[in-house]
Nucleic acid binder design. Structure first.
Lengths: 206, 206
DNA sequence: GTCTATATACGGATAGAC
DNA sequence: GTCTATCCGTATATAGAC
């Protein structure tokens, strides 16, 4: 029988704290979340939190980074190779916009933007482990379309960035502000369709 | 001689409070700003603030709306009519990106995004008096380029929205996160140039 | 209207028992 | 590691004099 103690014993309490903290921070923001409320949500005492995390900012940082690394793993709708340019871009566009405007993604953006100035290391970690990880995957698809003669993208990375921003567009910003649906001038479908049309013409072969 | 009292006497104290509040809120955010610090910055007592504004949220709302209505009035670099498409878009693009990434604009975005969920009326007021006022002015220029045969934009408002988002792009988001310059994959100039090229091809006549 | 002084509450962090 | 109980600073908002 083994009496070894694992080097990093995954503490059940620690997991509970992280889960509770995610709920609180994403719902109420950083400043409006108290360590008491996290303790209550996690079902532990406040002192236990401080046994695992040195401060509120430290806990917050751990929560955000963990959440970013978990995101963007639902690849169900991600387009396969061998599709024509319009179909590929439309599928990618819908998938991206849906992910960007999910409640969780929006919540993360709100709290990170709000705290970015006061916690620069967190902002960097978010950028690296969040938005930045999109670009290579999208760029790859543009490179593939270029190879197959469907599009002409001399710099796939630039094309990817333009595409992402066309997709986010006004629609994402309205959701980020929590405005009622219908406030935006273009619906989600219109946004994707318009963005795809722009990309197809801008990067057409010839 | 007139002994009439003006209906809305512009109180000097009230102005001082608003000025002080702008400084504090934009620098430290909503939650991290205390009414004490606003009072100190404005050179009045805390009780005087509550004589003019019913609560901290009320003061915050007044500050943001006033600031939005003042923005976007520096038209120095705004392109005149009669220029070709590339020159017009490049001038507009530079002007927009400079405005969007000014310290004040970024600060407003940070605090509004952070508080949007908890103060929905503020989010609506911001949207109406801020970002939404861009689109007609830009749309107008696309309509003009369309009339002169420089571009073909059946729906100038859609073209304007696509353009704004291409211009903001990654660069704006990195500044919003307060990341050090150089973090972004495209510089400001590259962003404007790439965005303009995309628009020119996507909306080329023929 | 404007001030000083204060009521009242809450939040981050810690001490010390088990 | 985990808990209970508590310290101590600070924040919003108000009472009452002038």
């Amino acid at each position: 029988m083994s009496n070894d103690t694992p080097k990093t014993p995954v503490s059940a309490k620690r997991e509970a704290i992280l889960d509770g903290a995610i709920t609180c921070f994403l719902e109420h923001g950083y400043a409006a979340t108290s360590m008491d409320s996290v303790a209550a949500e996690a079902g532990v005492s406040k002192a236990t939190i401080y046994a695992h995390f040195s401060s509120k900012a430290d806990l917050f940082s751990a929560v955000i980074i963990r959440r970013c690394e978990g995101g963007l793993n639902s690849d169900a709708q991600w387009p396969k190779d061998e599709l024509d340019a319009r179909t590929t871009l439309t599928k990618m566009g819908r998938s991206l916009l849906e992910f960007m405007t999910s409640l969780e993604t929006l919540s993360i953006h709100r709290v990170v933007v709000a705290e970015a100035i006061r916690q620069p290391e967190l902002a960097s970690a978010f950028w690296d482990s969040g938005p930045c990880r999109f670009f290579p995957r999208i760029s790859e698809r543009f490179a593939d379309l270029d190879r197959r003669g469907e599009l002409k993208t001399p710099t796939p990375m630039f094309a990817a960035m333009m595409f992402v921003n066309l997709i986010k567009s006004e629609y994402f910003f309205c959701r980020l502000l929590g405005l009622p649906k219908g406030t935006e001038l273009m619906s989600a479908d219109e946004t994707v369709e318009t963005a795809v049309n722009v990309m197809l013409k801008a990067y057409a072969p010839d």
